[in-house]
Structures are given as structure tokens and as C-alpha cells.
């Protein structure tokens, strides 16, 4: 299968922010010969969005490997060497082996597991969708507040502006274009505080970027807080496990399901 590898490599090195990075050890990804000592090989890993890249070193300019973090889970794992803080990226697909990785300490391990398990596009989409609806709610309640405390004597705005604004509230469609021009002109002219706020706020870059009332989020994504709780539970479990491991340092780490 073809992939636009040059663009992928370009994205790996682009100045858009990395979501996590650090050294990890790795074993047995296809193509790498096993190391005689069993300690794995140490590479520089960079997480960018839903893509995990590895490089020869921190200054490496050529990504050596790519893992797309979709449809996978991140689990604690046993490393060939006991003192490593290992975890695995597992895919639920036939013939796909887990990627076994190990961090240099428990904190780094926790941070990597957290970052990787939340790296999917779907997670990002749910956060965006949740914030989008929170912003709509916040703007609506703000608009209502201003509306109820509005007094003609306290304001320099013309009643027109107010009428215009009730249209905004009634049609409940704050990203619609119909609500902006009068309000904006009024405000620019009179510099009145408060009343024009909601209108002005509507003109943010994303509302232009997204077009009218469009969301970057597809309708079938499920509720964010449910998903967040779900991830949260997983992380709580991991934390418990780490604490037990730190306390007991037991050779086997199968204790996590006991109370």
C-alpha cells in the first residue's frame, strides 16, 4: 500500500507542536534485529496528533518508524528486562503484533501511557465537540443576562441593536450571519460596553473557519464525558497498579484486579 511518506515525514518535522516526546526502548518491531543483551534499542519518540514517530536521536531529521494510534489500546506490559517500565500499543487486528516500549521511569511511563491512550482523532473530536456546545451555552446565558439587565438610559446603543439581538436569541443560531452586521456597526460607532458583546464574540476565527453553524465534529461521535470517564478509569487502574508495584516491587505484577 502506498502512503504519501514524504508529506508524513514533513509533518513529523514540522513546527506544529509535538504532543509528547522522549526516549523509549523498543523490542522486536519488525525489521529490527534483537539486541544480544535483551535491553532493547533506545530511540527518540515524538507523538504528534495521532501519529507516533521514532528517530535515531533527539536531533534526528528522518523518522525511522510510524505508528498510527487509531483503533489501538495502550497497556502495561512485561519487558524482557525486569527493571524497565514497559507498555505496549496493541491493535485489535489479525496478524498485528503489539509494539512493546519501555520508559526510563514510572513517571515517564505514566505520562506516555496517558498521552498515547488519548491520542486518537476521535478523542480530540469529542473534546472539540464538547467545548463547542459549552461555548454556545455560555454565550446564550451571557446574552440572556445582558438582555434582562438592559436599560435604555444606561446604554448608548440604539434600540435597533436590541431588536437585532433578540432575533439572535430567538432563532437560537448564534453562528448565523444574520445577527452580526447591525450589531457590529452600532458597536463600532458608539463603543457601548456590554450590549454588543455577544455579537462581537460571534465573529471569532473559528466561526469563519467553520462556516455557518458547521461543526468540525461528526454527528455520530458519542458523549465526551462518558468517554472521558472511561479513560479516567483506565488511568486510575494504571495508577493503582504503579503504586502497588512501587510499594511491593513484587516480581509478578498480576495484582491489579485484587481490591
Amino acid at each position: 500500500m502506498k502512503l504519501n511518506e514524504r508529506s508524513v515525514a514533513h509533518y513529523a518535522l514540522s513546527d506544529s507542536p509535538a504532543d509528547h516526546m522522549g526516549f523509549l526502548r523498543t523490542w522486536g518491531s519488525p525489521g529490527t534485529p534483537p539486541t544480544p543483551s535483551g535491553t532493547g534499542r533506545r530511540y527518540w519518540f515524538v507523538l504528534k496528533g495521532n501519529l507516533l514517530f521514532s528517530f535515531e536521536s533527539r536531533k534526528g531529521r528522518v523518522p525511522l518508524s510510524l505508528v498510527v494510534l487509531e483503533g489501538c489500546t495502550v497497556e502495561l506490559a512485561e519487558a524482557p528486562v525486569p527493571e524497565e517500565f514497559a507498555f505496549a500499543i496493541c491493535f485489535d487486528a489479525p496478524g498485528v503484533h503489539p509494539h512493546l516500549l519501555a520508559a526510563e521511569g514510572p513517571a515517564a511511563q505514566e505520562a506516555w501511557v496517558k498521552a498515547l491512550s488519548r491520542a486518537s482523532f476521535g478523542y480530540m473530536r469529542l473534546v472539540v465537540r464538547e467545548l463547542e456546545s459549552q461555548l454556545q451555552d455560555a454565550r446564550q446565558s451571557l446574552a440572556l443576562q445582558h438582555h434582562s439587565s438592559w436599560k435604555p438610559t444606561a446604554s448608548c446603543c440604539k434600540p435597533q441593536a436590541r431588536n437585532n439581538r433578540s432575533v439572535v436569541l430567538e432563532n437560537g443560531h448564534p453562528l448565523s450571519k444574520d445577527c452580526s452586521p447591525v450589531g457590529l456597526v452600532e458597536e463600532a460607532g458608539s463603543r457601548c460596553a456590554g450590549l454588543g458583546l455577544a455579537e462581537r464574540e460571534l465573529q471569532g476565527p473559528a466561526s469563519l473557519l467553520l462556516g455557518r453553524g458547521q461543526s468540525p465534529v461528526s454527528p455520530e461521535t458519542s458523549n465526551f464525558s462518558t468517554l472521558h470517564d472511561w479513560y479516567g478509569q483506565e488511568i486510575m487502574k494504571l495508577q493503582q497498579h504503579w503504586q502497588q508495584r512501587a510499594q511491593g516491587r513484587q516480581p509478578e505484577c498480576e495484582e491489579q484486579d485484587k481490591p
Binding site: 508524513v8 515525514a9 519488525p30 510510524l66 498510527v68 487509531e70 489479525p94 496478524g95 455520530e220
Partner: peptide
Amino acid sequence: MRYNEKELQALSRQPAE
């Protein structure tokens, strides 16, 4: 750059937008 084709193939079977 190494990547596992099977992982990408699995992704291609996911629900499409």
C-alpha cells in the same frame, strides 16, 4: 520510514466519514 501496512489496512476498514 517503517510502518505496518496491516495497521493501516485495519484503519481503512473503520467507519468512514
